[in-house]
Each structure stands twice: as C-alpha cells, then as structure tokens.
Simulated assay, not measured.
Amino acid sequence: MTTMIPASSPEPSGEDIARGLAALELAANDHPEVETQTVELFETAEPTGETKRVAELRAEVAEAHRLAVLQDDDTPLLLESDKVRKMRRKAAEAARLHELAQDPMVRAYKAAKMRRLFVGVLVSALVLALSWSTAGVQAFAADGAKAWTAAWLFAWLVEPFISLALLGVVGSRAYLAVQGTPLTGEAETVTKRIEWLFLGLSLGMNAYPYLPGIAAPFELHRLVLHVLGPIVAVAVVLYLPVLLRGFTDLNFGTGEASAEGPHKGGTPGAYRENARTPYPRTPPVRTPNIEALAARVRALIAAGELAPDPGIHKIRAALKPMPCSTDTARAIKNAL
C-alpha cells in the first residue's frame, strides 16, 4: 500500500524512512506469491510477432489444406463437357441412322430413289447418243442435197422417228420387266429383232460414208466419232431392262421368300440380329375383303356417285382413303 504524502508536509526524516521500509518488508513476507508471479511474468513474456508476412503465410497454409481436401473429390471429373455431350449426341444419331437404314421400308425407299437416278442417267445418255447420231444420219439421208431444200430438211427427220420408235420399244419392254411380267418366248424374240433393226439402221447410216473404200481418204477417227452414238445407244438398250429387272427382284423383307417366287435370290434380312434395338418386322400383308368392297362400290353406283360400269381408277378413287391397290380394284371390278 502506497502512502500519499502531501506536498505541504515536511520532508521525512530518516526514522520515517526506516519505518516505511520495514512495513514493505513485512508486507512482502506476508504475500510472497505476488512477487514470484510478477517476476515470472516479466521473465517469460515475449512479443507476439503477428506481422503481415506471418498473416499471409498462415492464410496460404490454410488455403493449401483446403485445396488438398477438395482435390481428392472426383465429382468434377464426372461432369460432361460441351465437347463430350456433342460427341455423344453425334454417336447416338449415327447409331439410330444405322439402325434405320436396315429397316425394310427404308431400304426399299433408297432402292427406288437409286433406280430413278440410274434410269434417268441411262435414258439421258440414250437420248444424247441418238441425238449425236442424228447429224450423221442426216448427212447420209440428204445425199448432198442443198441446205434448206425439202430433201435437206426431211433428212433431219430420219433419225428422230427411228429413235422414237426405238425408245418406245425399249421403254415398254423395260416397264413390263419391272412389273414382273417380262416378255418371254416369241414375243421377246420379236422385240429384240425390232430393237436390233432400229439400232442397225442408225449404226449403218452413220458409219457407211466413212467406211474404208467408201471414204476418200479413209480416216479412222471420223468413223469412230460417227459410230460412237449408235454404239452407246446399243449398250444402254441392252442394259436398261437388266437393270430394272434387278431392282425389281430385290427383296426387302425378312429374306424368307420362296425360291420359286419373283424375289428369289434377294437380299436376306441378315442385319436384324446386329441391330442395337430390334426394329419391328414388316407387318403381314392383309388380304382385302373383296366382297365387302364390292358391296360398297355397288352402293355408290346405286347412289349415283359412280357410273354403272366404273373403271379401275374410278374404283380406287371412290374407295379413298381406304388403301386399294390396282390388283384389288381389278378384283372388285371382276366381282361386280
């Protein structure tokens, strides 16, 4: 305990000082732990050292610990990126297109599309080849007539009417082959003779003026150029029915057609087991009820909506939107 001495009090004497020191010594003897704690506090106290560098390092260490924990989590690796999703979408689309391409209806559609393409190319080549030979035939038929005279003008008609006749014969034979009733026997022989006659006339009239012994001087390249058109026409005429018959014989069903049927040797449905998701098989063909359809046509005739003796196309139009093929309409007409 500190004794406050007023400023106005007299200066302490030596006796007073001695008494004060004795009192302090007595107090220290009564509470020795106070002095010990005070000394220990001053001996062990150190500065904290919490500087800016220490705080930054502590934050960096704490961040590293948190990153180490988060890096062990593989969840971000399970997420799909935009590239992965795009590739997955393209792969799924390719798989579905592959599966769809094996469907019988799609295969039939593609075959019909390719048939139109090939027939168009071949017919175009045939028309160009016959047009190419027109000039040669005209020179042969004109026989030196002056330009724009009657003989010179009529000479231009020789090759066109031969070509039209040839195209008509070839086209009809090809159409019958596509419908599954190709010409056979004597009819096929006569038709082929007619085709060869027309082609021979065109080839002969083109080549004759340029044959050795006829042309003076003989030039091979001129002969080749003039016979090129008829030769191409012969090749197209011979191949076109074969091509159309081949497309007609394609089998887009299950490959179970009878060997005696019109589709023998067709492509079997061997893809079906490899498909990822089996597509439905071709539905069975339902036989139409001819009697019921004929009764409906009779009712339309009685109501005046159809003529008493309607044609096949009229019957098909009257039964729409019901499916009615040409064969079915023919059977209905026979039943009437």
Rank of each mutant, 00 (worst) to 15 (best):
V54H: 13
A64T: 07
L21P: 07
T134D: 06
F42K: 12
R53K: 09
A142R: 08
P262W: 12
T48V: 11
A335Q: 12
E11V: 14
M4W: 07
T277K: 13
S13L: 08
D309Q: 08
F154G: 05
L250K: 10
P230R: 09
L117C: 04
A235R: 04
G265K: 09
A95I: 12
G20N: 13
A139L: 13
R316W: 04
A18Q: 06
L240Y: 03
S13H: 10
R193Q: 03
A64C: 00
V227P: 03
Q138C: 08
A18Y: 12
W196S: 02
L100D: 11
P212L: 07
G120V: 14
D249A: 13
A302C: 01
G265Y: 10
V158G: 02
E219C: 00
L157M: 15
T2K: 06
P32M: 05
K52L: 14
V297C: 01
F161G: 00
G266M: 02
V242H: 08
G144H: 10
S81V: 11
E33C: 12
D16C: 02
I301F: 11
R116A: 10
M322A: 15
S8G: 08
E186K: 12
I290S: 02
N29K: 03
D72M: 10
E260Y: 14
P76T: 00
P262L: 14
R281W: 11
L228R: 05
R19P: 11
L225Y: 06
N289C: 10
F218A: 08
A187W: 09
K333R: 15
Q179W: 02
K90R: 05
M4R: 03
K52F: 13
P262Q: 05
R96S: 01
E256P: 00
P278L: 14
L201S: 06
A299I: 00
E219Y: 11
D249R: 14
L250V: 06
L203S: 02
F252C: 05
R276I: 09
D249C: 12
L293A: 01
L41E: 12
E33D: 10
G261A: 12
R316A: 03
L240H: 05
R272W: 14
K333G: 00
L300F: 09
